[in-house]
Amino acid sequence: MRREPVLSSRIFIWQRFTRLTGDEVLQAIPLYHPIWADADPDDITFADSHAAHGNFRNWARLTAHTQTAMERTGWARVDQEVLRWVFSRLGSGA
C-alpha cells in the first residue's frame, strides 16, 4: 500500500502485527471467545500449532468453524477430537 499514494496518504499510523507467542495465545484465546474459556491449555496449544500459528485471523476462522462444529454435533467442550474434525474442514490436517 505504501507504493500506492492514494491509499498510503489515508493511513494515519502504520501498525505492524506479529504472531502471538505460545504464552500470549494461552492468555488471550480463553478470553477471546467462550468456547475457549474452559478448554484445556494443551488443546489450545494443539489448535495453535496445527491451524492458527499465532495468527489472530486464523484464530477467528478456527473459532467460527469450531463453534459451528460444536453446535452441529452436540459436543459440549473443545477437545482434540473436535479440533481434528475442524482441521479436516479447514484443510489443515493434523
Rank of each mutant, 00 (worst) to 15 (best):
Y32S: 06
L7W: 04
R72C: 14
L83F: 02
D48E: 13
R61F: 04
T45N: 01
A69C: 12
Q15S: 14
H53I: 06
I13W: 11
I29Q: 01
F56N: 07
F17Y: 12
E24I: 02
H50T: 15
T68I: 14
M1K: 12
I29C: 03
D48Q: 08
T45A: 10
A60D: 15
N55G: 00
M70H: 06
S8C: 11
S88G: 13
R3S: 09
A28H: 06
W36A: 03
A69Q: 07
I11T: 06
R3Q: 07
V25R: 00
A52Q: 04
I35M: 10
E4H: 11
A39R: 02
L26M: 06
T66D: 05
I11M: 12
S8V: 09
D42I: 08
W59P: 00
G93N: 10
S9P: 01
S88L: 10
G93L: 12
Q15F: 09
R16E: 12
T18F: 08
M1V: 13
G93K: 12
A47V: 08
P34T: 08
N55D: 11
G91N: 07
S49E: 15
A64V: 05
M1N: 10
Q67D: 11
A64Q: 12
I13G: 06
N58W: 14
D79R: 02
A60E: 15
G74W: 01
I44A: 02
T21G: 08
W14Q: 05
W59L: 00
A28M: 08
A51G: 05
A52S: 04
W85L: 15
A64T: 07
T68P: 04
R3F: 06
W59T: 00
A39W: 03
R72M: 13
E81Y: 06
W75G: 11
A94V: 10
S92C: 15
M1C: 13
Q80I: 15
R3T: 06
H65S: 08
A64G: 03
L83M: 06
D40Y: 02
Q80M: 14
M1D: 07
L7T: 11
A47H: 04
R2S: 13
S49N: 14
R72H: 10
A52D: 05
D40V: 02
L26Y: 01
T63L: 09
H33W: 05
M1G: 13
A52K: 02
S9M: 02
T73V: 11
L26W: 00
W14Y: 10
D43E: 10
H33G: 01
F56S: 07
Q27P: 04
L20F: 05
S88K: 13
S49Y: 14
H50G: 12
L90R: 11
P5F: 03
A47Y: 06
A39C: 13
S92L: 12
V82L: 14
R3M: 07
I13E: 05
G91C: 04
V25C: 00
V25A: 00
Y32N: 04
R2C: 09
E4Y: 07
R2V: 12
